[in-house]
Amino acid sequence: MKELRKIYLPVLAALMLLSVARHMQGQDTLPAALTEPKLCGEWYTPEIGYVGSQLFRGVWFRGRVTLEDGRTAHNRILAYNGMQDQLIWLDKKGGKVLALDKGLTAGFVLRDDKGEEMRFRKIRVKPLLQNDSVSVYAQVLFEGENISLYAQRKIVNDYTETYGGYVTSASRRFLAPKPVYFIFMPGRQSNQIEKISRKTLYAVFPEKKKQIRKTLRKNRLSLHNEYQLVRAIELIDRMGQ
């Protein structure tokens, strides 16, 4: 029995691989060199003089990039620089790191080591105290029928530590993630939330304040973290239907 297994199992594994490969080849397979778009960007130079990582979660991910013309570049090593709002591509074969042209990129997907995918999209927002709207990369947290919630994974200078004497003082700037949330509703400007609380949520939906309070109570939902914010937006979106 064991010997038979020894013979059959490797053969089975090989046949399975062959079968999958054949199936994939039947699916209009064109060489990747032909179909994959060429990613364009500048040589990446991170800002220096900071303590802490400027990258989202401090790591590189496997992922894909969707361009404005609809084409997708697959299986690339990517990172998101939250400080400079840049998508970075590590081209191991070419020996270079590029900050991709934001104007040509529509969005990207990062896949963490658990296989979970985080979808980012380029959105146009009007930041507080600014006149013009700007394009930023933001993670898609919820996209409902009426309401969408995005998070810009900003990394900011959290605090500065100054040391040394009066004449020869030096400072160290520490980085920390500080996400900014954007709520989109049809026919209305984007709403920016920097602090997650019931109060900020009521400010976004003043006309539904009572209803929201009732719904949150009914679902025993407090608002302190991102997960709860996503859940609350999901409930508000359902209310609007």
Binding site: M1, L4, R5, Y8, L9, V11, L12, L15, M16, L18, S19, R22, H23
Partner: peptide, 19 residues
């Protein structure tokens, strides 16, 4: 078990190897 392996073997043989 062996029968199952045999069935699997022949099924994959037919799907993997083109005519």
């Amino acid at each position: 078990m062996i029968n199952l392996l045999r069935i699997l073997f022949f099924t994959l043989l037919f799907t993997a190897v083109p005519w």
